[in-house]
Nucleic acid binder design. Structure first.
Lengths: 253, 253
DNA sequence: TCAGGAAAGTGAACGGTGTAAACCGTAAAC
DNA sequence: GTTTACGGTTTACACCGTTCACTTTCCTGA
């Protein structure tokens, strides 16, 4: 509260160093090298223990760059949606989803860092927030925008299992729930279902636990979307949506 | 070809050492320790380089114990099914699936080792075989047994996308396809869909990228099953199957 | 039976990792 | 202008996977 004073010179310097840490880390990842404190430090022209002035541990470094990677990637997902008209809510959602899948396949190491490093029990809450912060926020936001427009059927609070009801009424994950009436919280359950579906295919593809030809063609991804879109009231729109998705799959491939 | 001679003493000794390597590794994992060559060696009362007489690298050690862990866990999944009558094909499949989920939640490190370590491009084929060897074989076998019994609808070869058609006609994954006529290969696509669904929820739960209350209750797992069983022609059987699944979820929890 | 040889295991060493402690100059703060 | 604290270095420790040279042991073939 009160006036937030402008950052002092030292604070700016410090912020710049954080940026350089992230930049060096991302370069390492992009070059296929291991992400290690020493490698990051070396690339910055600094010795390893110096990084402990900025992160308390290796895990914290990982969390930091994971957060930033997710943030940067989300810009791409949003840009993909912006190729479509603002009122094509379904198209925007599916196109962002496809961009997510393409990014994951093209950057498996980054995907693993963000979405496949187990959540520690200690800083659990914070990690949860980080995990779904950017990309999750975008996708749930797009799902909500779609629903605001079409008001497709959603599960009612009564029909939800007790644990799920609690979870959607007081969500841990910072999804788009502000101003969502309790009767409309079934939408949050749809968020979670959709995220589960998307995470499932993409993780399976990235880790390669699937026939390479199926991965390369993206047919399992398309199939997963096809089975899910009816829950968003988009069954009739599927042919058009499929075309949009396949265009994106082909171009990036 | 010809007579397979009985193993000499040295070969028996060597085999026993392999067993001890796996045993020591699994003990380490179970105790929450890191799996490392040195730790395994120390536990065996041996020095680290000695292990190189048995595995060519650390990665090969990981592959070895991953394979054995999967094999051992599968025995449990099969045992879970054996609590049901031999002709309750649907029940057996869902109960084994539930056992898989419970095992993964209870042994996250082991699950990660088997199902979340990226497939190397080099020994790709071999790794694929390992990956889905035991547990995958069991579940696809159960799906096939179910279909042999009910002959529920399956996708026809013509309606499958080209890449998928190739993949089911000449599968990389050693699923239950022997003696499966080309016209029946749509079943393999169902295998893959089912595996994707199962892997998705379970991986998400294990890695904790989901509301803890939803994980703990298992509601997302149940919901995933509910949405999938109709593809196996089991829509009418769902109430009974749900009861079976929930019993198992509650008991192990 | 005995010599030869392969197999199994050891010790030391190299380069790599995360992390802790002690230390120091310099730049900000009073 | 003194004091303080920040950002950095050096050194060190305990691990890690891996290689190499060497020894011991046991099996095999003449």
């Amino acid at each position: 509260m009160g006036t937030l004073r402008e950052p002092t010179r030292r604070e700016r310097q410090r912020e710049a160093t954080y940026d350089e840490i992230v930049r060096a880390s991302r370069e390492l990842l992009a070059e296929g090298a291991e992400l290690s404190l020493r490698a990051v430090a070396a690339r910055m022209g600094v010795t390893a223990p110096a990084l402990y002035r900025y992160v308390a541990s290796y895990q914290e470094l990982v969390d930091l760059v994971a957060y930033e990677i997710d943030k940067a990637a989300t810009i791409g997902f949003r840009a993909a949606a912006d190729e479509l008209p603002e009122d094509d809510y379904a198209g925007r959602l599916l196109v962002s989803t496809t961009a997510f899948r393409q990014w994951a396949l093209a950057s498996p190491r980054e995907f693993g860092l963000v979405f496949a490093n187990p959540v520690a029990d200690a800083a659990c809450v914070r990690r949860e927030q980080l995990t779904l912060a950017s990309s999750g926020h975008l996708l749930t936001g797009q799902m909500r925008a779609l629903w605001e427009h079409t008001h497709h059927p959603i599960p009612s609070l009564e029909e939800l299992p007790a644990a799920v009801r609690e979870s959607v009424l007081d969500p841990v994950i910072p999804a788009e729930v502000e101003g969502l009436a309790p009767a409309e919280r079934g939408l949050v359950w749809l968020y979670m279902q959709g995220w589960t579906q998307l995470y499932g295919v993409v993780a399976l593809e990235v880790f390669g636990h699937m026939d390479p030809r199926v991965i390369e063609s993206g047919e399992m991804f398309v199939d997963t979307l096809r089975h899910f879109v009816p829950r968003l009231g988009l069954a009739d729109d599927w042919p058009r949506l499929e075309r949009l998705v396949r265009e994106r799959l082909a171009s990036a491939q």
